[in-house]
């Protein structure tokens, strides 16, 4: 279940025609976003893919996301949860009204992702890029009295990803579609993962409002450890996987500054939260 928390962070990824996808930033340009992302869940998908209850758990991340063009083809990307909060509710007896298990919380920095994206094609109508992502275990694991609170998964991971997409017009409306395929190699006996997804967006009102829809999938290779193969008291669940749908709206308040809202939820999963996640952010886009 620890993975429930860390994996659901992936349900919403910052992407638009100006950030993410196969499009590198131009040299000296960038895209930055300060956002709040959260999920509160009292049920989860089990290893059989069914939904079971759990004590209400919340994760709130205040994150800084940034892309910056080092060259026209090479972009550096950081996704840093500057404040990550994980809590469990109190468990209270309905019969006696006594608190049976005290709720707890931790507030720390979360796991930071650093990545570099390189555009394999330049000035193409069908851009393709390759990315290397390094997931740094800067968050906390094993927090709280029972060791069940976390703001990171405690493992270093490296993911290589291919992105491809295309920008086009529907009448006078700018639009795009992109997809990705990645392989995530994880340490500390976590299962490796294949990740893929597709998204499409359209810029309305002279591209002041971008509406985006996404499908993200993580397939676990289930080649990591389980409670049986490591210590029996290990808190590390493994083999989480899901398919999620997300919708996102980005609205430019000024030429460069805008707000972003999104919602995402798993439509299928194993060992993952069965509740929607939300985000709200303010972005600064140097490309406009």
């Amino acid at each position: 279940m620890k993975n429930i928390i860390t994996t659901i962070l992936l349900l919403v990824a910052t992407t638009s025609i100006f950030a993410g996808g196969p499009w590198p930033q131009k040299k000296g340009k960038g895209y930055f976003k300060l956002s709040e992302w959260w999920v509160v869940f009292d049920q989860h998908y089990t290893d059989a893919g069914r939904i079971d209850p759990n004590i209400t758990t919340g994760v709130f991340n205040t994150s800084l996301y940034g892309e910056y063009g080092i060259t026209d083809r090479l972009t550096a990307i950081i996704n840093a949860p500057l404040i990550s909060r994980n809590y469990n509710n109190n468990l209270v007896s309905l019969t006696t009204n006594e608190v049976l298990i005290q709720g707890e919380s931790i507030n720390t920095i979360g796991d930071i992702d650093l990545s570099f994206k390189y555009g394999l094609t330049s000035h193409s109508n069908f851009p393709i890029s390759i990315s290397l992502l390094l997931g740094l275990p800067t968050g906390t694991t094993g927090g709280g009295t029972l060791g069940n609170l976390q703001t990171g998964d405690g493992e270093f991971n490296q993911m290589i990803q291919l992105d491809a997409g295309s920008g086009f017009k529907i009448g006078k409306t700018n639009a795009y579609i992109s997809s990705y395929l990645g392989f995530n190699n994880r340490t500390r006996e976590f299962s490796e993962e294949v990740r893929y997804g597709v998204e499409a967006g359209a810029g309305l009102f002279n591209s002041k409002l971008w509406l985006v829809g996404k499908l993200n999938v993580i397939e676990s290779l289930k080649n990591g450890s389980t409670a049986e193969s490591v210590t029996s008291t290990s808190l590390f669940a493994n083999n989480s996987e899901f398919s999620s749908l997300a919708i996102e709206a980005n609205y430019y308040i000024t030429d460069k500054v805008g707000i972003s809202v999104s919602a995402a939820g798993a439509i299928r999963g194993e060992i993952i939260a069965a509740a929607p996640s939300y985000s709200f952010g303010v972005f600064y886009d140097m490309n406009k």
Partner: peptide
């Protein structure tokens, strides 16, 4: 922009520990 940043702050603070009840 100020309203947006204020909304960010409100969301980040709205994460208090509440009670789950169990029929025991």
């Amino acid at each position: 922009l100020n309203i947006a940043i204020f909304a960010l702050l409100i969301i980040s603070l709205n994460s208090c520990i509440e009670n789950d009840y169990i029929d025991d």
